[in-house]
Design a protein around this nucleic acid. Structure first.
Length: 293
DNA sequence: CTGCAGGGGTAAA
DNA sequence: TTTACCCCTGCA
């Protein structure tokens, strides 16, 4: 891969394992939207950027080399060799081989811990459009104004300090519902430093999970999502309904407990479990595998 | 058109 | 292990 500066942006040349729909529609993020021209615009770390791909070039608009170096390089996980991961997973069995071929351009974004925590608290028993709507409402009301891009206004995700002083009524947006109390509780625990969310990545996976589950509204699934999508813990294996379906379809008897599926995945995929989960999830959801039994 | 089940889990019983 | 949860969407 080669990085070049262009007007109001940069271009990544000769890039591998990087497909925009795979990355932005594999369920890991909620603030990226497809434009009419097929490009994607999104907000992360207080910036709004747009990505467009042509052959083996990815154009990142509305940024500069400095931000690329400090933010986007890490955010798009550009140091990781996905070719190697895909090779290892494909060697496991035919199911993995097929899943990897299907989502060949997936990359795991390294998102902000706090934003990921709140986003996945909102995701519980919720649907993607509703989750996105709730996150946008929080950002528009309590985030900072970033600017106007292509005729739309963009706002950063609100800091915990900003949400700390709010009441349930203040955040009673569509899609938040019963999760409102969890959000306020999380802001309180983080602001009061009862849980140091930005230090959890330095803990062992089991310990970080234990800490995350101290947050109200955070169970095994949400904690694994937060660890994998923001803390670089690839041995986490979040099991949502789609992963449960695809695991039951290919690997374990129907009705296997989540705990047993987790253990099965741990043994089968090891520290690549998170990546395996992501390829399986994308494959299962796009093809609706196991949906109609 | 109206009515109702269920959804990218978790907490509480 | 089972059930309620906000509320929107899909479907009967």
């Amino acid at each position: 891969m080669h990085v070049k500066e262009i007007e109001n942006g940069i271009v990544l040349e000769n890039i591998k394992d990087f497909e925009l729909p795979h990355i932005f529609e594999c369920g890991q993020c909620f603030r990226w939207n497809k434009e009419e021209d097929g490009s994607y615009t999104g907000v992360a770390f207080g910036k709004v950027i747009n990505l467009r791909k042509e052959h083996d070039k990815v154009y990142i608009d509305n940024t500069n080399y400095n931000d690329f170096k400090n933010i986007w390089h890490s955010y798009f996980d550009l140091d990781r060799d996905y070719g190697k991961i895909k090779e290892k997973l494909s060697a496991i069995d035919e199911t993995m081989k097929t899943s990897v071929e299907f989502g060949y351009g997936i990359r795991i974004l390294k998102q902000d811990e706090w934003e990921t925590l709140i986003s996945f608290i909102i995701s519980a028993n919720n649907r993607i459009p509703m989750i996105k709507r709730a996150i946008e409402a929080l950002s528009e009301n309590y985030g900072s104004y970033i600017g106007n891009y292509r005729g739309k206004k963009y706002y950063s995700f609100p800091k915990p300090e900003k949400l700390y002083n709010l009441s349930l009524e203040d955040i009673n947006f569509k899609g938040i519902g019963f999760r409102g109390k969890y959000i306020l509780n999380a802001a309180k625990l983080v602001v009061n430093k009862e849980i140091d969310i930005y230090n959890l990545k330095n803990l062992e996976t089991f310990k970080a999970r234990e800490e995350l589950m101290k947050f109200s509204g955070v169970g095994p699934k949400v904690s694994d999502c937060v660890m994998f999508f923001s803390m670089d813990k690839s041995d986490a294996f979040p099991i949502d309904v789609w992963v449960k379906r695809v695991m039951e379809y290919f690997y374990v008897p129907e009705g296997t407990s989540l705990k047993k599926i987790q253990k099965f995945a741990e043994e089968k995929f090891g520290n690549l479990a998170g990546f395996a989960q992501q390829y399986l999830f994308y494959y299962a959801r796009e093809l609706k595998i196991g949906k109609n039994k």
